[in-house]
Amino acid sequence: MTESSHPQTVANEGTSSNRADGTSDDVGALFDLLESHDSLAVVCHNNPDPDCLGSALALEAIAEACDVGRVDILYAGEITHQQNRAMVNLLDIDAVQYAHDRLASTELVAFVDHSIPGVNNAVPPDYVPDIVIDHHPMEGVAGTFVDRREEVGATASILAQYLRVTDVDVEERVATGLLFGIRRETLGFMRGVTEAEYDAAEFLHPFADVDLLRRLSDSLFTPATLDSIAEATRNRVVRGSALVSNVGRTAERDALPQAADHLLNLEGITTTVVFGVVGDTVHISARSRDSRVDIGAVMRRTFDDVGNAGGHKDMAGGTLPLGLFGILADESDELCSLVGETITERVFDSLA
């Protein structure tokens, strides 16, 4: 199937009709679509996290139950976070690097945990995927089957519901992957959790490997990650209840969200933004537990004109090409520090 032949109708855009009530026409529509094709590429977002990986693993199992002959899980970027690496290894997730030619060689293309081509993925911006399953707030989502529910706390909860309302056998590794994805996305059911996550956990728990879940949760982080978190702690700038920190150049991209989570525990702090330069890109992670702050909207408002940014009310992130600031990747740390000061002031101005 070519790019231009992909239909652009929306089956379930932002609705909540696919509930675990055993009577979901929309889930049936997904199965009908899968059963009429022989190959599927499940495209993860860049640097996929447990919610994305668990959802991809579940969609792979559903596709195989629908007799799809070949299923590929694709991702761009890297899988470097210690828990993400452990998840891929221990659950034997066969994820391979994304390449454009893979889109042309498969009949169906699915996005999980993201929804817009070219935004936090390597897919060309003019491409229209066949299947989109996501929980992030986005506009202009198109596809043959779209299930986007921003009122749900994790994409894995949506996939768990698909399994619950069908007769697909729930494999231990799939249940474990989904449950771990939900736990990580909600920080152990403490952030952005909804009734859907509790329902999914209740359904998945009997099928999951609890000992393996514990091993995934206890995955050790590297000394370099600890150093980056320490750098974020040392460089913090606090104004009121907001904290912004610049870790400078780092190879530990996944340390940024960990630092943002860690610093949110500081007394008097309700919003954190941590950023650093990874290669030729500024990566940003943001968190908030202030009911007055929609940190996803703040990130979009602050950086959409110079990069990709967005997320949820309590958790968000973004990327900015370093070249936009006139700084090349091999230039001095002093110049990158000036970029950091610019970003810091921009964040505080937006929060104000």
Rank of each mutant, 00 (worst) to 15 (best):
E13Y: 14
T176M: 07
M87N: 06
C44M: 09
L159R: 05
A297R: 10
L163F: 04
E171K: 10
R289N: 12
E197V: 03
I79G: 05
A95L: 03
I79A: 11
V71T: 01
L179I: 03
T9V: 07
I182P: 02
A110D: 02
M299S: 03
M315Q: 08
A201M: 08
V273A: 08
A259I: 04
S217A: 15
T23R: 14
I327Y: 07
T176F: 10
L33M: 01
E3H: 14
L351I: 01
A86E: 01
H135M: 00
A316G: 03
L266R: 11
D101Q: 09
L212Y: 09
E60C: 13
V238E: 12
L322F: 08
H100D: 15
A230G: 15
N120S: 12
D25K: 10
P48M: 12
V96H: 13
T225P: 09
R300W: 12
G311D: 10
T176E: 05
D126N: 06
R292I: 04
V237R: 09
D254W: 03
D101M: 08
V10S: 12
D227N: 07
A99I: 04
A29F: 15
T222K: 12
C44H: 10
P125C: 12
G296M: 02
P206V: 00
H6P: 07
L53E: 05
S105P: 12
E139V: 05
L322W: 07
F180G: 06
N246V: 09
F221R: 15
D261R: 02
D49N: 06
E267F: 02
